[in-house]
Amino acid sequence: MLEVLQNIFTAQNAISGILLGGLFAVLGVGMTIIFGIVKLTNLAHGEFVILGAFCSTLISQALDIDPILTLIITIPLMFIIGMVLQSVLINRVMLQGSEPALLVTFGLSIILQDAMLLLFSADARKMNPSYAQSNISLPGGLYIPVLDLILLIISLVTILVLTLFLRRTYMGRAIRATSDDIVAASLMGVSIKKAYAVAMGIAMATAAVAGLCVGMRWTFYPSSGGEYLLRAFGVVVIGGMGSIPGALVGGLVFGLAQVFGGASYGLLASYVVLIIMLAVRPQGLFSK
């Protein structure tokens, strides 16, 4: 028994878990923004991530470029899709209350899932750049997988850029103000619908990044969305709604749960962590 535990809780696993934390954080950050600002549970977020993964895969194949470079195309593309979606559909449904809005995103998720199935077939996909198998050796027989390190850096840069945008720009402040007080924000000249549309665009842009990371790290299918939605939700629950630093911590928890759970129980471990969190502290670890 002790030996089994020693095999699981190794330093190497801890390194992997921490590296994966960034990926899970960026997975959750789009969800947390929509939660905190638009006050919407976006059940289609998982499908958005998978859509991002497909876009990156296809573009990198078509142009024969490194998958990471596809972000130049996928981020603006997904941003626009998000803005349009929010402006023409979700803003309208939100007038009817939160439950219809929740069900509309649910409808979107099943539409997207089957649309991707039709467009891209049910085959397993994965992006395999040349550096996917290389490692950086550390003393003591430990090593850092290059791919995981790159994904961590991409995730952290994304979150940093997002944080700076929200803190330093007029639009970023307007979005934060809207999440605090809609009426006061509109008195400052903020168009709430526009703020929501931009927030959804940003969430979609982070989904593009998360999709790239997921598609480089694991194989994915058109039906993989649900799995990543629940993980994104888990990150939100642990970190607290709308909290970006919280998403980082949530990502770390899920990264470690994934690695310590191993190949067969990683997902189950994540779900159990999430259920316990929901039951004990649904408002998140970091909110008052």
Binding site: R173, A174, A177, D180, A184
Partner: peptide, 16 residues
């Protein structure tokens, strides 16, 4: 006020 924003950010929102 936008309670989760700093005083200065609140004021800057005024010049939105």
């Amino acid at each position: 006020c936008f309670i989760r924003m700093t005083v200065e950010d609140n004021l800057i929102m005024g010049s939105y």
